[in-house]
Design a protein around this nucleic acid. Structure first.
Lengths: 182, 182
DNA sequence: GTCTATATGACGATAGAC
DNA sequence: GTCTATCGTCATATAGAC
């Protein structure tokens, strides 16, 4: 029963971190290899080309998203409140892949966009069960907006200040969700 | 009283269109020149380097955004409803610069991020006057979410279908805004 | 498995003709 | 003002040693 290779994951972690911190353009094979502590040749042994690396990142995203959907369904505070709270950047593994993958989507990477659409639809379905299809949309867009702002900041300066500012906003959004629920 | 140069604007339009349709990475000087119908050398006569082209695009964005803020303040249906409606992609000049500029922000372009932050703050101020600071945030994030989804699609396939799907969502969001206003 | 070359091809930018 | 030609740099990917 062989364990999953470690170096491969380290490379993927480095790719993810660079996408988040410096954007798609600077997440080059050279930079990823250096950050992962391997040579470029070593990197390309694990992933024959860059597209393969992206594919693996999307696999990781789908896996973590599936776990998140389950947690959302089982959340005691309700799916809507869970969704808003988890739309806030918390540096979780899921947050990280999401932001990383968004950097790729912005570069017009079609496969990435398709994956996002699939996950968003699942969220919407769960939300609709709780608050109805109409209000589910309002909640969904609020969460997307929260996420969008986290993503726009990325590794920019003063990230902590902005992140805590958004954290305060979550209270307002949860209050809004309460009012919409009735 | 010399009119503004035409070729310059044509180049800027081409740059904007490419950012929207194919993303930052493919919006190269070669591609922009070709689309604008000039040679690369011709392009670089108007804009000494790529950064200058980006600066001009951001100037265009700020100018159009200022007009939008004024319209928002004067909107008969109220600022919040105006904001939600105008967050929908409608292929207006402002919509176009926004999406184009977002492509740059995603690539960790600091100056672009700063401009966005400035505009968002102005929106929030106007919204707060109408519905109070707390609910202004809810409205703002809904609008951001709407915008985020339009942006994620970009020039992707089947854009029209998705755009009309979001158009239907606006009704739900306006209903939500009504419930939050009271 | 991981490394050091190196090939190949873009991209941004400059020089200088017209 | 707009063009062609070209340079320097950097990115992806390949070949082959260890």
């Amino acid at each position: 029963m062989p364990r999953k290779p470690i170096a491969r994951d380290a490379v993927l972690d480095a790719f993810e971190a660079l996408l988040i911190e410096v954007g798609e353009r600077a997440a080059t094979l050279d930079a990823v290899a250096k950050r992962a502590g391997v040579s470029k040749g070593g990197l390309l042994y694990h992933f024959p080309n860059k597209e393969a690396m992206i594919s693996s990142l999307l696999e990781r995203m789908d896996g973590l998203a599936a776990l998140d959907i389950e947690a959302m369904k089982a959340a005691p505070e309700g799916a809507a409140a869970f969704f808003i709270k988890s739309s806030l950047w918390a540096d979780t593994p899921l947050d990280r892949v999401f932001v990383a993958a968004t950097r790729l989507a912005e570069v017009a990477h079609e496969e990435t966009r398709r994956r996002f659409a699939g996950i968003q639809q699942q969220w919407l379905d769960v939300l609709a069960e709780e608050v109805g299809p109409e209000m589910a949309k309002a909640v969904r867009y609020m969460g997307d907006g929260l996420y969008f702002n986290a993503m726009l900041e990325g590794g920019a300066g003063d990230t902590e200040v902005k992140a805590s500012a958004r954290s305060a906003d979550v209270g307002a959004l949860l209050a809004a969700v309460e009012r919409l629920r009735t």
